[in-house]
């Protein structure tokens, strides 16, 4: 009987690939955003509205992660933006290897901003670095303010939270004070955008921030 000591991280292989992606994206001066949320938070609607707002100003590309369908990718394609669909076929998150493959289909394009729409899920995507610059969690008011403490890792790992469906706030029990207090506990540095993808309220602050971030990376 032999005992072999390993002390090796299970995510080591993914982290190495993510670092490689990050080097490639950085050399291109590309802003890469990993969008994470529960199903139905409004990620795809937010992307559609963002694409419309940035049209003519910033060249966009999108990688769509979905379990099985290409419905979201079709919605993005209808907006005239290059999109690569990844079907994870049951896997609940994207990983760095999937992004490397998807990127090979976008790299010939003059993209300045790449959105990666992760699989709808607040648990699993949090563990997998894709090589992105910025992690954005989209939370909608209809999901409830308690999600920050229920899924702390995803909020801890993110730099930005988009609080979506702000137009529905009066019709929900979402407690904005509790939400801000919990965010302060879990991640005091996090930046929050309150907006409504549907009505467009608050969208300008979000898109101006994106323009600013893209500007920082121009080489």
């Amino acid at each position: 009987m032999a005992q072999i000591r390993m002390e090796t991280n299970l995510l080591g292989a993914n982290d190495m690939l993510a670092a490689k992606n990050r080097r490639i994206f950085k050399a291109r001066g590309l802003l890469v955003i990993n969008l994470m949320s529960s199903p139905g938070s409004g990620k795809t609607t937010l992307l559609e509205k963002t694409i419309e707002a940035l049209r003519g100003r910033i060249e966009l590309g999108v990688i769509e992660g979905d379990l099985y369908t290409d419905q979201d990718a079709m919605r993005i394609e209808n907006k005239g933006v290059e999109v690569v669909q990844i079907n994870t076929e049951g896997t609940c998150h994207l990983d760095a290897g999937m992004i490397e493959k998807a990127w090979s289909r976008l790299e010939h394009l003059p993209i300045q901003l790449l959105f990666i729409e992760n699989v709808g899920n607040l648990v699993c995507p949090a563990e997998f670095d894709l090589g992105e610059d910025i992690r954005v969690v989209v939370l909608s008011t209809t999901e409830g303010h308690d999600k920050v403490l229920k899924y702390p890792l995803v909020f801890q790992q993110a730099q930005v939270v988009v609080l979506n469906k702000i137009d529905l706030l009066p019709y929900t029990d979402f407690d904005l004070n509790a939400f801000n207090r919990d965010l302060q506990l879990v991640n005091p540095q996090i930046r929050v955008f309150q907006l409504s993808g549907r009505t467009g309220e608050g969208l300008a602050q979000w898109t101006e921030w994106l323009v600013e971030e893209v500007g920082k990376r121009v080489i």
Partner: peptide, 29 residues
């Protein structure tokens, strides 16, 4: 649950000592 608030001085600035481990320590065969 997972909040970062020092019970001694109330500071929110802290670093994680443990909780993100995910590794194989050893195997036997």
């Amino acid at each position: 649950p997972y909040g970062q608030l020092c019970p001694n001085c109330g500071s929110k600035a802290s670093h994680l000592l443990s909780g993100r481990e995910l590794f194989v320590e050893y195997y036997e065969g």
